Amino acid sequence: MQRFKELDDCEQAVGSHLGYSGWHTAIQQQIDLFAKATGDHPWIHVDQERAASGPFGTTIAHGYLTLSLVPKLVWEIYKVDGLSMGMNYGSNKVRFPSPVPVGSRVRAGAELVALTRGANGAQATVRVTIELDGGDKPVCVAETVSALVP
């Protein structure tokens, strides 16, 4: 894990890769719970029998479920000490180039793209690339923006 003692240390890391999270396994129970929580129930996500004869041979995680893992995975990559608060501010761009089949493993890599100072702290822009273990394309690429308050 990359640790920064303060925001000034983060500025020095702009343009650098911060590291990788651990691996996370996509399980059907999590996919089903996400479908229930969001009301998003297409067969490709929740009907294991039908999905077995579908284009991926199994169910796949929702793209937005994959995106929702970003905070958890990024917490494993870097931390800024001395903050009173950090929170999601938004995303500039999100893409899902490849599916996440149930039972597969994903991890995130993070690159600090920008750190913009403001009156109440800073906004950190981080490019998060979630990769599939053994995959040839990322499953999610998101440029996230976080508010960092000292």
Rank of each mutant, 00 (worst) to 15 (best):
Q123N: 13
G22E: 06
A124T: 12
D136T: 10
V80Y: 05
L132F: 08
F34I: 08
Q2M: 09
Q28E: 07
A61E: 04
R127N: 11
G82M: 01
I60S: 03
E111S: 11
V113P: 04
N120C: 11
K137W: 01
N92V: 05
L7W: 02
D81E: 15
M85Q: 15
L69Q: 09
A52D: 11
F34Q: 10
G57F: 04
F4Q: 07
A35Y: 03
H24S: 12
R117G: 03
E111K: 15
I27S: 11
Y89C: 03
A114K: 03
Q48V: 14
S98A: 15
G103A: 12
T38F: 06
L115W: 04
G22P: 00
S98H: 10
H41T: 14
R127V: 00
L18V: 05
R107I: 10
S68D: 03
T129A: 10
E6M: 04
L83R: 02
D47V: 06
V94A: 06
G103Q: 07
K72N: 14
F4G: 01
L33A: 14
I130A: 06
T116H: 09
G57K: 05
A147I: 14
Q29K: 15
H45Q: 09
N88T: 13
P97V: 12
V145W: 07
K5T: 08
S98Y: 13
V74E: 08
A35R: 11
V126H: 01
A37Y: 09
V139K: 11
I27V: 14
V80E: 09
G19R: 00
L7S: 00
V14R: 01
E111R: 14
L73W: 05
P99H: 12
I130R: 11
D81W: 01
I31E: 08
E49Q: 13
R117T: 00
A122T: 05
T59S: 01
Y20I: 04
W23V: 04
G118W: 05
Y89L: 10
A52S: 15
G121S: 13
V102E: 15
T66A: 02
D81T: 08
L132M: 09
H62G: 00
I130Y: 07
T116L: 02
S91I: 12
N92Q: 14
S104L: 12
G109D: 11
W75V: 12
